[in-house]
Amino acid sequence: MNPVNYLYLAALLFTIGATGVLIRRNAIVVFMCVELMLNACNLAFVTFSRMHGNLDGQVIAFFTMVVAAAEVVVGLAIIVSLFRSRHSASVDDASLMKL
């Protein structure tokens, strides 16, 4: 098996995550889909690391994890405060951008 299949898997997972972001209305699930996309990227990075024989890809994946952790913390905090003020976790309810 060619390890490039990992890349196809990463692309597939990324696409599923992105589509999920577009389809779901629950902010938490949307957020989970974003995490799925990040993980797909990480898989790609790890595969690239193996492909090129150096560890830089893994380091980037590591940083991605850190940033994802920070993002999750802030994002979930936002969701919680949004829920408090609107009693809803639906992203459609925050459609204030419409005129």
Binding site: V21, L22, R25, V91, D92, S95, L96, M97, K98, L99
Partner: peptide, 14 residues
Amino acid sequence: LQNGYARSYAVSMF
């Protein structure tokens, strides 16, 4: 197209 839904805009970006 400007319906105010973030998801709609996300589709355009995607």
